[in-house]
């Protein structure tokens, strides 16, 4: 269970995240929505500790992760995988090596530096790629892949960390509708299949409504909505998005979920 208690992030005089308290049980698929600049990314990055909260407490299964350092911090990051909007792969390394980055916290430091990956690490990485239907791309350089393929490589990297929670920061904002659907389906699959908690920042309301068990709305750093997707009426969305509302409420090119999966929620 992930618990955020009064989490605040101050940048100079601006409050990017303002006393957010939130409890997320294991296995939930939670969408964080809100207009750009609402503090969604900052919130997610604080959970992975890429940014430190100015105030408040974040804990996972009762243990505080806000003040972790060194080895313990790296272990926490191993358990809470991060997926980025721009994928954040190492373009010049091949796909397999990129996925194996997710094994770094498990591997022996010096062997990893020499790229002497164990047979099991390679097997896990290849199986993850196969799970995402991109195993044949393993020897290619990551930068030669399309956006959708790169994001799936990033998901593999997250998976092989053997995480307990997956944070995804606008994972489909740079992708076309078809790739968006493939990536969101993949996240949905790992949530159901492996029982991983997924916390995903989304700009598009339709994707959020389609895939998430629960929606959390942010505006100007504050938590302003927390309920099941059905409770998010157009009126609430208009409050949340202001002038951008018409843009995010457009439904024509919204991706449909993989058949047979949407009902299991």
């Amino acid at each position: 269970m992930l618990v955020l208690d009064g989490v605040t992030k101050q940048f100079g005089r601006a409050r990017a995240v303002d006393t957010v308290s939130l409890t997320i049980p294991r296995g939930q698929f939670v969408g964080v929505i809100g207009r750009s600049g609402a503090g969604k990314s900052t919130l997610l990055r604080m959970i992975n500790r890429l940014g430190d909260p100015s105030a408040g407490r974040i804990s996972w299964d009762g243990s505080d992760v806000t003040a972790l350092k060194g080895r313990a911090l790296r272990d926490w990051r191993r358990r809470c995988a991060m997926i980025f909007q721009q994928f954040n792969l190492v373009g010049r390394l091949d796909v397999l090596d990129n996925v194996l980055m997710g094994r770094l916290a498990h591997a022996d430091g010096w062997r990893a530096m020499a790229k002497l990956w164990s047979r099991d690490d390679r097997a896990i990485a290849m199986a993850a790629l196969a799970q995402m239907d991109i195993a044949p791309l393993a020897p290619q350089r990551a930068e030669t892949l399309s956006g959708g393929q790169q994001q799936r490589v990033a998901i593999c990297r997250a998976l092989v960390q053997e995480p307990e929670i997956v944070l995804a920061d606008e994972p489909v904002a740079s992708l076309d509708p078809r790739s968006s659907r493939i990536v969101m389906d993949a996240l949905s699959r790992i949530n159901r299949h492996f029982g991983l908690t997924v916390l995903v920042n989304l700009h598009s309301l339709d994707i959020a409504r389609t895939y998430c068990d629960r929606l959390v709305g942010m505006a100007a750093g504050k938590l302003v909505f927390d309920d099941v997707p059905a409770a998010l009426t157009d009126g609430v969305a208009r409050d949340l998005y202001g002038l951008e509302a018409n843009e995010v409420l457009e439904r024509d090119d919204a991706p449909a979920p993989e058949s047979g999966l949407a009902v299991t929620a």
Binding site: G27, A123, M126, F194, G195
Partner: peptide
């Protein structure tokens, strides 16, 4: 697809031999 959460490591390792046979150069 099973309903009970599967162990990630075990699930992936179970496909290890299959992967080794299909992509020997990656090993």
């Amino acid at each position: 697809m099973s309903d009970a959460p599967a162990d990630l490591r075990a699930a992936f390792l179970a496909r290890g031999a299959e992967m080794e046979a299909a992509y020997p150069q990656m090993f």
